[in-house]
Design a protein around this nucleic acid. Structure first.
Lengths: 131, 131
DNA sequence: CCGTATCCGGATGGATACTG
DNA sequence: CAGTATCCATCCGGATACGG
């Protein structure tokens, strides 16, 4: 029941309140691997190994785990080809593509403003030392 | 040095590669508390206690820690009033407001599509049991 | 090739108590 | 009021080895 989730807000959900569905959605999204895997799938259907190579540093464990969560939440579709050697492909659903556009903006933002933030961190650091 | 950060991509940064600045920015953003605190600050300047009440379930520890990170990265400005009882206010910087617009879209999306995801999870669950 | 299984250290974050 | 300090369970996530 979400009746205690601020019914006066749009869609009857309020991410600021724990136990609201939208809050748990936010928790799911709050993962760098989700960002990157969704980003890697945005251009189109990809195989497991392609994803692993695209998302540098992700371990099989985290890649599989992330893909499973995305599949469970209806953002990614998984297709298995019964061939040898095995071939498994992943692609975004409509819902997933919808989200990917938003996440992509965040990724672009983080690339655009990386210098600003690097400077801010540097200033913060020297403030600690001298001030 | 970011010379190994895909110089052919815009801004010379590539979030898909570890050790790239934009990757660490993504890591910072990948936190539900960052989402919520930035969202709570979006309407305007807020006191510590106001934030704590707005973001349901956040502990003093996590609130302080989150605010410090946001301050360090130049997204939030902190102002202390030397009065008794203490009064401390937080507000978004220009950079922070810029980001807040994006994060807000994610929050809205998570509220809009919460039902879809709830259904997807339910379907995934019954698939496990029966299939 | 596409995963699963296992181990394990360190970080995360919750609860609680306390202070200027 | 606005934090800090401390304890502690949990989980996250990395490395590695192995399996269908």
């Amino acid at each position: 029941m979400d009746s205690d989730c601020a019914p006066d807000t749009p869609f009857g959900y309020d991410a600021f309140r724990r136990h609201c569905m939208s809050h748990t959605v936010l928790e799911m999204l709050a993962s760098k691997w989700v960002y990157l895997v969704v980003g890697a799938l945005k251009p189109g259907r990809r195989r497991y190994g392609e994803l692993q190579r695209k998302v540098e540093g992700i371990t099989p464990k985290m890649l599989t785990q992330t893909l499973r969560v995305l599949e469970r939440d209806g953002l990614v579709r998984r297709e298995i080809f019964p061939v040898i050697p095995p071939r498994v492909e992943y692609e975004l659903t409509d819902l997933g593509r919808n989200l990917a556009d938003l996440l992509n903006q965040i990724r672009v933002w983080s690339e655009q403003h990386a210098p600003d933030i690097r400077d801010a961190r540097a200033r913060s650091l020297e403030g600690e030392l001298t001030g």
